[in-house]
């Protein structure tokens, strides 16, 4: 594994490898999600308790899973940047944050739409919804912090520090929200175990969403590498022109 990450430290090699992998991952994601949707709409039965609204689960649960997994990926990448100074670590962290935030938003949005028929209201201060909402705020903080700095390398390291602080605090936030919820609310009766006929489509959708996430993450990383390349070339171009003018004007040199 160490040798793989070392190999990938070369952006050119990463571009080659990711270029060949990306179509396969994207294709697999499309096929698996299509099969999952077929199972969801044509095969899977309605839940005896929730009726057809259980169909929201097949997109809500994978979104929530990706919201957390993306934050984990951001945290691992931040660790890789601060500790190992891996050249692609920040590219990975920067690429994962907006995608993770998008899935966090989807988890909240679909959760709220699921809540209306189930609980009779769009928003309840359910422990899980509340935790995901705070996770969403952390994503927003990461994006805002990065955009507030002009120097990219400083912004990258500061964002990494915040991501790691978030990882340290998140379990405490989760714990306190659970505590707070049991203190104020009766259980929402949402804990029934999932029947196998519902579980198989759910797992397939989760797999498809995960592959989709990795395809988007790879693409975002490739874009970011290109963006940095363009930026470096523009700087080199300007430096080159300054060098030329310095040659023609010896006093300035």
């Amino acid at each position: 594994m160490q040798t793989l990450t070392q190999k990938l430290a070369n952006p050119t090699r990463f571009m080659q490898l990711s270029g060949t992998m990306l179509p396969w991952i994207a294709g697999a994601a499309a096929v698996i999600i299509a099969y999952g949707l077929y199972l969801v709409f044509a095969v899977s039965p309605p839940d005896y308790q929730q009726g057809e609204t259980v169909k929201i689960m097949y997109i809500h649960v994978p979104s929530a899973w990706l919201a957390m997994m993306a934050y984990g990926l951001v945290a691992v990448s931040s660790f890789g940047l601060l500790v190992f100074r891996h050249p692609l670590a920040d590219v990975s962290a920067k690429a994962a944050v907006p995608i993770g935030a998008a899935f966090t938003f989807l988890a909240l949005f679909t959760g709220s739409l699921w809540g209306k028929p189930m609980w009779g209201t769009y928003w309840v201060w359910d422990a899980r919804l509340t935790s995901v909402l705070i996770l969403f705020f952390l994503y927003l903080g990461l994006m805002a912090l990065r955009s507030s700095m002009d120097d990219e390398s400083t912004a990258a390291k500061l964002t990494a520090v915040l991501a790691l602080v978030g990882v340290a605090i998140l379990p405490i936030i989760k714990f306190s929200v659970d505590w707070w919820n049991t203190l104020h609310q009766p259980s929402t009766g949402f804990t029934s175990t999932v029947d196998p006929s519902l579980r198989v489509p759910l797992l397939i959708m989760a797999l498809g969403f995960t592959l989709l996430f990795f395809a988007m993450h790879l693409k975002a990383m490739r874009n970011e590498i290109l963006r940095r390349r363009v930026k470096a070339m523009r700087v080199a171009d300007i430096a080159h022109r300054d060098g030329m003018s310095a040659l023609s004007n010896p006093v300035a040199g």
């Binding site: 952390l138 507030s148 700095m149 306190s176």
Partner: peptide, 27 residues
């Protein structure tokens, strides 16, 4: 410390710090 150099430091500070205060507030 994170926002010492940032533009729009004050608003950014609130966005970053308030989620971290959730456990303190709840307990």
């Amino acid at each position: 410390a994170l926002t010492v150099k940032a533009r729009r430091g004050g608003l950014l500070l609130a966005l970053i710090v308030l989620p971290l205060y959730v456990p303190t507030l709840i307990f």
